[in-house]
Design a protein around this nucleic acid. Sequence first.
RNA 1: CGGGGCGUCGUAUAUCGGUAGUACGCUUGCUUUGGGAGCAAGAUGGCCCAGUUCGAUUCUGGGCGCCCCGACCA
Length: 418
Amino acid sequence: MRQSQLFTKTRREAPKDEVSKNAQLLIRAGYIHKEMAGVYSYLPLGLRVLNNLIGIIRKEMNAVDGQEVLMSSLQDPELWKQTDRWSDKNVDVWFKSEFKAGGEVGFGWTHEEDITSIANKFVSSYRDLPFSAYQFQTKFRNETRAKSGIMRTREFIMKDMYSFARSADEHEELYEKIASAYDRVYARAGIGEQTYRTFASGGAFSKYSHEYQTVCEAGEDVVYVHEGKRLAVNKEVLEDSVLADLGIKRDELVEKKAIEVGNIFSLGTRFSDALSLKFKEEGGEAKSVIMGCYGIGPGRLMGTIVETLADDKGIVWPAEVAPFRVHLIELSNGNEDVHREAEELYRELGQAGIEALWDDRDARAGEKLNDSDLIGIPLRVVVSEKTLAAGKFECTQRQDGKTEHRSISELLDYLSHA
RNA sequence: CGGGGCGUCGUAUAUCGGUAGUACGCUUGCUUUGGGAGCAAGAUGGCCCAGUUCGAUUCUGGGCGCCCCGACCA
């Protein structure tokens, strides 16, 4: 799209009350807008990034046979009372409201109860299992303290998947399959190398749960990374018995700060028992369904990418995540030939299916180039009197600043292979 | 929820019990044009409610909001 028509603008300075790098850069570049503490809106550029991340996650969940649903935000207290998770004493993150006609209602902060109740309508036989269902849905959590920009908010979209299996073995198989999908998500999101499957406390039904932790100075968690095995152990569970389980030694571990970008865990029969989700085995015997739960917050993932990959000039988006593939910078200063050349290139890119942000604003070179660095689109293509004379465009990688000069066909060829 | 800090043009910052200034941004004009240009003219501000005072943006109290540390974080 034409940058002159983009209704957001960049800013030189971040608001003084934003301390986290992710929020500072995302606000300065016009990706997000803060509504109140812990509540952010996504603006055109930000929504493009968020949707790209959602697209990646959706594809990977579908690839492991996840079935997408969309559950309601409004939650029925009766359901939650059955699992003892309605009272504010047991759960302190509830947002609650009332119906005009009387009666309480809650805003969902997770959906085990809901999905289990839905599954109950359809699952009765061993033939109905296994399956996994997931959604992208806005969660509400009344955090006592929102913090770190978009990393910990009171309203956020979460991809939450729930698996339903007939046996512990079957559950384990599903669990591992989904875990591998998670690895692919982080790799495609550009933070695969920094992200480790991390052993964390498991709760009542399995010894461990797994977090996906991205090593980053801004992280709130402390993990111990075993580079050889590409895994990590959360500080919370760092004990000799855990090290023995994993076959690793204490001195092989390196302490790092990390951001939790995903969490998967086994639920056992905690919810199926409480809500009577059972199936009949081949022999006719009723058994409780074994469940698992798998979460990723695309917003937090977006923040983590910014925290992890940004440099002192601004954001650096990985290719699959970026709001546009190309940032076309027109430095025409009123030169009609340069302007026409930029317009032509923009059209050609569009025809090739490559989305570009075309900076056609009447602004000086410094402002445009600095904005381009801040916005962080992977490839910057400059069109100017110089490039017009040379017959080649100046193509610069945002990530490493490397520049190459390409003709239009060379550029299209490069983009089709990248 | 405990502790601490902060609310001044759109943004970032000064000052001050008596005229609220600067920078960037914005408007208009001229010049300039490859890493946030120059000149000139202009518009825009004291979170809310009380109290003290001749006079409050400033002092006091309350409210609301925001940030940080901790606790919490299936």
